[in-house]
């Protein structure tokens, strides 16, 4: 097993001479560490020879990148039109209430991060929530609470 830093080294070596590699590098670095810390952004910038300001600019532009630690379970509430007209915002209300966190925030015990996601394309099952990598559809406020209480 490689340590986290060894994995990063491998990643940077692979991409350091490829033009346009910043986004895939940030994506894979985030996969290794879970989020992009200021330190990590500095390392990536210096190895890819990109000004830190530009790397930071890219990292803050795309919603996929996170600059703060996230919870063990990521709950993403779909914001698509179909989910909206079939009660998606009600799911968000009960989740905010239950977790005591706003969208984009993580609970204090680092157990849950509540997020929104642009349409997941599972509109036939609206309203939909993604819990970690699992798409859960045809939810009601009660069902979504049941689902997340089963998360360890």
């Amino acid at each position: 097993m490689l340590s986290l830093d060894e994995k990063l080294e491998e990643l940077l070596t692979k991409y350091q001479d490829t033009p346009g590699a910043l986004i895939p590098v940030l994506q894979q670095a985030q996969e290794i560490y879970g989020y992009l810390s200021p330190e990590l952004i500095r390392i990536i910038s210096s190895r890819l020879r990109i000004p830190t300001s530009r790397t930071y600019g890219v990292a803050t532009f795309y919603s996929q990148f996170h600059l703060k630690p996230r919870g063990r379970h990521i709950i993403k509430v779909c914001q698509g039109t179909a989910c909206h007209v079939r009660g998606g915002s009600k799911l968000m209300e009960v989740l905010k209430n239950y977790l005591g966190a706003q969208p984009g925030e993580t609970t204090e015990d680092l157990k849950f991060t509540l997020e929104t996601v642009a349409c997941l394309g599972a509109c036939g099952l609206a309203p939909v929530v993604m819990i970690n990598d699992q798409t859960v559809g045809q939810l009601t406020p009660e069902k979504v609470l049941q689902k997340i209480t089963t998360c360890e």
Partner: peptide, 11 residues
């Protein structure tokens, strides 16, 4: 990059 909410034909 099919982004329109409510569109999933490309997916």
């Amino acid at each position: 990059d099919e982004g329109d909410p409510g569109a999933f034909m490309d997916r």
